[in-house]
């Protein structure tokens, strides 16, 4: 089993690095959305600092969502998804390995980019630890929930907008807790409560969502 998962993880990583555009585009999108806000509300440092927690989190959330649109598409088109269904290994484990590989590469890149954008928005440097921690704990949940939507819409020709419609309402708790953690640390308060909640949400989605994702894939492939 472990050897199987390892080969799957390696395959995913190799595929992702072969198409760097899919990896880089969400990051550019993330930076672009963050850059739009000072242009829209004005360059006042005070205001931007106040808004930065929510702003970074909304941008990160949208970037994760965008990166998930094509998560299962190529596997669907070249038939590997059907092979997965036929394989004797549990489908839930396979999808979990795939989504987590995707997260380790694209989510981590997002986390690493975020401090730069946060500093540009004027977030004090003592908040950066909370920012990185909250994104590290929050983005796995975003990836796993988004994968449910990606699995349900993979067979549809124009699934992108529908994916956003299905999944964004489910992202709300993570958005509230993540930006809440950042806001708390911006006001000099402890953010451990919010971070712990983010962690427990991550554990909850880690346990339950693989089943929903595999059910969604079975429906999409069976069509």
């Amino acid at each position: 089993m472990t050897g199987f998962v390892r080969s799957l993880v390696l395959r995913e990583a190799r595929l992702l690095f072969r198409r760097p555009a899919e990896l880089v585009n969400p990051l550019i999108f993330f930076a672009l959305v963050v850059a739009l806000f000072p242009l829209a509300v004005g360059p006042q440092a005070e205001l931007l600092r106040e808004l930065s927690p929510g702003l970074i989190w909304v941008a990160a959330l949208l970037a994760v969502l965008l990166s998930l649109d094509g998560l299962f598409r190529s596997d669907y088109e070249d038939g590997s998804l059907e092979q997965w269904m036929l394989s004797p290994r549990p489908l839930a484990v396979l999808v979990l390995a795939k989504v987590l590989t995707h997260w380790v590469i694209s989510g981590l890149a997002l986390v690493l980019l975020s401090p730069v954008l946060a500093l540009m928005l004027g977030l004090p440097s003592q908040c950066l630890g909370t920012l990185i921690l909250s994104l590290l704990l929050g983005t796995p949940t975003l990836s796993l929930l988004g994968a449910i939507g990606a699995a349900l819409t993979v067979g549809l020709r124009r699934g992108g907008l529908l994916l956003a419609l299905l999944i964004l309402p489910l992202y709300i708790p993570v958005l509230i807790l993540g930006s809440g953690a950042l806001q708390a640390s911006l006001q000099g308060m402890s953010s451990s409560g919010q971070l712990l909640w983010l962690g427990s949400l991550a554990v909850l989605t880690l346990t339950l969502s693989p089943f929903a994702i595999s059910a969604g894939l079975r429906i999409s492939v069976g069509e």
Partner: peptide, 20 residues
């Protein structure tokens, strides 16, 4: 498949409702 997909989505939604 539409009905099955809606079923999965409704179940995922109902688990999320208390959290939301």
């Amino acid at each position: 498949s539409a009905a099955k997909a809606c079923s999965v989505l409704a179940l995922v939604g109902v688990v999320n409702i208390p959290i939301i």
